[in-house]
């Protein structure tokens, strides 16, 4: 049984008591960056999966006979053209109820009762690289003047690029936070070494190996960084929950509705795992940085 010993008087250094607080602040920032990264990644994925493969075509005056095939209505003709185009997996006209639901925010629930000439809206599911929109346009125009294919792909690509950039920024922020934390730990360790120079020389003279001395410092740094990071992650939690609550209306479109009773489902699982991992990663940074710093410093002793 080995009781942790404080041969080097590490517990008495006032300056290093700041370290857990600094690490807590770093960990708080890291938690925010992680949330940004996880959130941006989820949004990018959702946009790509949901909207990238969808194209809508508006057909004004859908019941009017088609321009190029008078035997068919315009909407029937548009559907036939779309279904015969390579790169299109399927085309389906939205029902009146779906249309009313889409328009409700603008026209209110009585949209159907208004005597407005509503266009038909065809939802097109793409396959592979999708159709040649430039060639499709004139054919649709000939069949149903005013029919415009509206590709979400361009917007989705832009939004995805934005989300990916945000994700990359979050990772850069995380790397910076980790680097700054390591630098702070190294500085604190070096000042701790300078203060205890006499004690280290004595212990070194009694036959302590570099491993023993570095191990004492590293064990203490590991404890301090782990506790500091736990504190920071805990402090970030309410902030993240509020952010998740604010983001819920955007994230929940088309997804399962958030259950307000279960607060732990408010954050995605990867974020929970990342938050729990923060103290571990911080401890690892603390341990590694201290080991390297102390061993390098000890080189000045024979």
């Amino acid at each position: 049984m080995t009781r942790a010993r404080d041969d080097l008087g590490l517990g008495r250094a006032l300056g290093e008591r700041m370290l857990p607080l600094v690490v807590a602040a770093m960990s708080f920032l890291a938690a925010l960056a992680l949330a940004g990264s996880v959130g941006a990644a989820a949004l990018a994925q959702r946009w790509q999966e949901g909207a990238a493969s969808v194209l809508t075509v508006q057909v004004p005056h859908p019941a009017t006979p088609a321009g190029d095939q008078p035997g068919q209505t315009r909407v029937e003709r548009v559907l036939a053209i779309l279904r015969g185009t390579p790169g299109i997996a399927g085309a389906r006209p939205l029902s009146e109820a779906e249309l009313a639901e889409l328009l409700r925010p603008w026209l209110g629930s009585g949209a159907g009762r208004l005597a407005l000439p509503l266009p038909a809206v065809v939802e097109v599911h793409l396959s592979g690289a999708g159709p040649d929109i430039a060639a499709l346009g004139p054919r649709l125009e000939a069949a149903a003047p005013g029919a415009t294919p509206e590709s979400h792909g361009v917007w989705v690509r832009r939004l995805s690029a934005l989300a990916r950039s945000l994700e990359a920024c979050a990772w850069v922020a995380l790397a910076l936070v980790a680097g700054i934390a390591a630098a702070m730990i190294a500085i604190a360790t070096r000042s701790g070494l300078a203060v205890r120079r006499d004690a280290i020389e004595i212990v070194h003279g009694l036959g302590a190996t570099d491993g023993i001395i570095a191990g004492r410092f590293a064990a203490r740094a590991t404890r301090m960084t782990a506790s500091g990071a736990s504190l920071g992650a805990l402090a970030a939690l309410p902030v993240l929950l509020v952010l998740a609550d604010l983001a819920a209306p955007f994230a929940a479109v088309g997804a399962q509705p958030a259950n307000p009773g279960l607060w732990f489902t408010a954050l995605p699982l990867p974020l929970w795992i990342a938050l729990a991992g923060l103290p571990l990663v911080a401890a690892l940074i603390g341990w590694g940085t201290t080991q390297v710093t102390v061993r390098r410093w000890l080189r000045q002793l024979p």
């Binding site: 070194h204 003279g205 009694l206 036959g207 302590a208 190996t209 570099d210 024979p302």
Partner: peptide, 11 residues
């Protein structure tokens, strides 16, 4: 090496 010097100091 350093490690063996430390062990030597113990004697």
């Amino acid at each position: 090496g350093r490690h063996n010097l430390a062990l030597l100091r113990r004697r």
